[in-house]
Design a protein around this nucleic acid. Structure first.
Lengths: 190, 190
DNA sequence: GTGTGTATCTTTGCGGTGTAAAGATATGCG
DNA sequence: CGCATATCTTTACACCGCAAAGATACACAC
């Protein structure tokens, strides 16, 4: 990024492409994630991504993996490893990075079998799975149900918040402060 | 559908196009929802949808509206108007119509301001909102939090189920019977 | 009935897309 | 220095959404 002199061999094209992709994503939404738009933004030819990522899905998968890593970091940075705090970190990440978060779960655009992506998403999931449950599970299925319950609620809330559909639930306009209160209240509901 | 004689004026092209779109959707996934593919499947020219739906977004929005109406019907057909039964109906619909359900919440492909779609989605949401809460809400925000909690959990579960990510939570392979048990258990968690 | 306006559908054309294949260029290593 | 190789560009092609113009058949006034 500091070196703008145009040379045939870019030097660090992969990260430059991912940067461009992310800028376009948060700027113009997920519909702007075209391969040609990304390479155009990066100042290279339309097929320059091929040697590094193979195809568009490869670029988006790499970007999604970055997203999962950042999500993991956000959840790991919480002081209290409680459902409430980790859930809030999860949802705050989604609200702060709506395009990226959407991409991370758009399975017809990314390739979940990519090793990097698979590792990154598993690590993020384990942050939620390792939460201490208030009532000890009576069976493996019950344990799975507890994890699914937490996962689903947090993930569902994040999606509703991004889509602006929580607005429909409140009489007043939903300011950021009110949204935070709503999230906290919702996560407190056992 | 009973009349296959090809005539210049199709007669019932809108519903035929929506039918084709739905077939392609459940057959080849949401990525197959191209305007040209839909019209090709319906046996008409590539731009035949224009007078009826305007553009691709119009077709997909109409299809999404159908989805919301069917979802509403599924939730209305439950005998017990409980969180558990209505939630199960919601999730079962999603599992039975994964492509359609995904489309219904893909806001960069559909146009939520379409009147039909807006009405249909509001009706579906009200089915969840009108659930009796076990503890009376202490404030409007608390009421919103209760609704968000139910909405989020059910919606999150549906998405996780569709994406096959509940598999990651269980040690054994997730048979349909086991999935039903897991869903019931998860929804019972208060 | 007949004529005409209009809605419906087709044809054509254009700029955009992803990506395969082949060519150009720089790098790195023997 | 020489050359294999990785990296990037150019070219080409099939596909896409959609605007515009043409063809067709319906509907309704007369």
């Amino acid at each position: 990024m500091t070196e703008t002199k145009p040379r045939y061999h870019h030097g660090d094209l992969p990260s430059t492409l991912l940067h461009s992709a992310r800028v376009l994503l948060e700027q113009d939404g997920i519909a702007a994630l075209k391969l040609r738009a990304i390479t155009r933004h990066a100042g290279v030819s339309a097929t320059a991504a091929t040697p590094h990522f193979g195809n568009l899905s490869g670029v988006l998968s790499a970007l999604a993996a970055i997203g999962f890593n950042e999500l993991t970091a956000a959840m790991s940075n919480t002081t209290h490893k409680t459902m409430r705090d980790i859930g809030l970190a999860y949802i705050r990440f989604a609200i702060a990075n709506p395009g990226l978060f959407t991409l991370m779960f758009r399975n017809d655009s990314i390739d979940r079998t990519t090793p990097d992506l698979q590792n990154a998403s598993e690590k993020a999931l384990s942050c939620l799975a390792d939460l201490p449950s208030d009532t000890p599970p009576s069976s493996p299925l019950d344990k799975a149900a507890q994890m699914a319950s937490a996962w689903a609620k947090v993930h569902g809330l994040a999606i509703l918040a991004i889509d602006g559909q929580l607005q429909a639930l409140t009489p007043q306009p939903l300011t950021p402060i009110l949204l935070e209160k709503l999230l906290a209240n919702t996560l407190s509901i056992k």
